[in-house]
């Protein structure tokens, strides 16, 4: 740092109105002494009330908005077009939220402490979550297709086909006989 920079700030350090009013200082000190005992009850009530209420409101809004429960399996079984759109919107929203969080942490320079590890772990869990979700979705989609289903009853179907085949054969026999006559 240059010497003249220090001169510059020395002048500001000596600004005439730098010190707080004595009356003001005493007044705050007295206020602090008076309110000293109230602190614990206020904090706990706020915590007890706000957190569950916020969670309940969010849960309610989500359930009203989607008509779905919170189980992932149900979310994975979304089939209608509207619900598919919702899944994509949720995906995009989560992706943007996570990306914004990462950009915020690094560009704000909050690179000391847990936030960096949070960016790594959240990215990793996002990846794992997407893989699991994609896997569930694929399993559910395959169940819809009868050709891959284990519950498809080939034997009874075969019997039906044989019956139809026999009926057709006897009908053809009759018509052929009629034609010859």
């Amino acid at each position: 740092m240059e010497e003249r920079d220090y001169d510059l700030f020395d002048a500001l350090k000596k600004r005439p109105d730098k010190e707080p009013d004595v009356d003001f200082s005493n007044e705050i000190r007295q206020k602090l002494q008076k309110t000293h005992l109230k602190k614990t009850t206020r904090f706990s009530i706020a915590t007890i009330l706000t957190v569950p209420v916020t969670l309940a409101v969010l849960l309610f809004v989500f359930m009203i908005g989607t008509g779905q429960s919170f189980e992932l399996k149900n979310a994975a079984q979304l089939t209608t077009e509207w619900e598919k759109d919702l899944t994509i919107i949720v995906c995009i929203f989560l992706m943007l939220a996570l990306s914004s969080f990462i950009l915020f942490v690094y560009f704000k320079g909050l690179t000391k402490g847990r936030l960096v590890y949070m960016t790594f772990s959240l990215s990793f869990f996002a990846w794992i979550g997407n893989l699991v979700y994609a896997e569930h979705r694929n399993i559910d989609e395959t169940i819809v297709q009868p050709s891959y289903s284990e519950s498809y009853d080939y034997k009874s179907k075969r019997d039906n086909i044989d019956e139809i085949q026999q009926k057709q054969d006897s009908y053809l026999m009759k018509t052929n006989e009629g034609g010859i006559k």
């Binding site: 109105d17 707080p20 000190r29 206020k31």
Partner: peptide, 30 residues
């Protein structure tokens, strides 16, 4: 309290705001 007041005064360049900040800071700290 003097240090906090100085900090607030340099930050806002306003005596009123510096007093508000000092008061709020110590109530939050409490």
């Amino acid at each position: 309290h003097r240090d906090v007041y100085h900090f607030a005064l340099y930050y806002t360049n306003s005596k009123q705001e510096a007093e508000d900040i000092t008061q709020e800071t110590f109530f939050k700290a409490m």
